[in-house]
């Protein structure tokens, strides 16, 4: 495949652009499915409750991200992402979608996408952070000019736009949990900006295991 070099090879571990910053902040990591991921920051109980009571943020850069350029036959669902098993299909332009998924789910989706149009692997191009908790919107308000109010950005809302003054996307995955995508080269910068805002509001970085699952009911009524 002529674009094979864009994708993660089985022969070596992959590292998130945020990993060094996270390790510097006290992260514990382990290798899962070829990626060195941050499992926790040493206190999973506190991390889980931060996501329910204040705000937590976690590195999800290991998510597979695929760009699909197609002929525009599907109607353009501007601003609203489609939930797929293990992932999302996000409409960027009438002829361009961004697919996000856990690596195993992505592998299953890929053949179908190749049939629809041209697929390009952007996994390494984009970093991803989840920000979860009742103060998530307040965190975004510190570095992002997008309108993320409940009425303007319901669950499944998807917004391409500037994040921390750089090009990116925000996805509302479930109540009080948002995913923000940004250029991978900005990894360390993004960690600094988000950590600064979150900690100011009384939150903390968390491991991926502490995030509330997308398809689960919210923990609070």
């Amino acid at each position: 495949m002529s674009l094979g070099f864009l994708s993660i090879s089985a022969g070596a571990t992959a590292r998130s652009p945020l990993l060094d910053a996270a390790l510097g902040g006290g992260a514990r990591s382990e290798v899962r499915d070829g990626w060195e991921v941050v499992s926790s920051f040493g206190d999973p109980t506190a991390e889980r409750s931060a996501c329910i009571e204040s705000v937590g943020f976690a590195d999800l850069s290991h998510l597979t991200k695929l760009e699909l350029q197609h002929d525009g036959a599907r109607p353009f669902a501007a601003g609203e992402a489609l939930r797929l098993p293990g992932g999302w299909r996000c409409p960027v332009r009438p002829r361009l979608d961004l697919l996000l998924a856990e690596p195993s789910a992505a592998a299953a989706l890929r053949p179908g996408l190749e049939a629809e149009g041209r697929v390009c692997d952007l996994t390494g191009s984009l970093g991803a952070l989840a920000i979860a908790g009742p103060l998530a919107r307040e965190v975004f308000a510190r570095f992002c000019a997008l309108d993320l109010r409940e009425g303007s950005m319901p669950v499944r809302g998807f917004r391409p736009g500037s994040v921390a003054r750089t090009p990116g996307y925000v996805l509302h995955e479930r109540p009080e949990r948002f995913l923000v995508l940004f250029g991978a080269a900005y990894g360390q910068y993004f960690w600094e900006v988000v950590a600064d805002a979150v900690e100011r509001l009384g939150g903390r970085p968390v491991g991926t295991d502490s995030l509330p699952a997308i398809d689960e009911e919210p923990a609070r009524a």
Partner: peptide
């Protein structure tokens, strides 16, 4: 505002 400069770094930077 906050004093963070939007710097790009390669994945090998460390």
């Amino acid at each position: 505002g906050r004093p963070f400069e939007a710097a790009k770094r390669s994945s090998i930077h460390a």
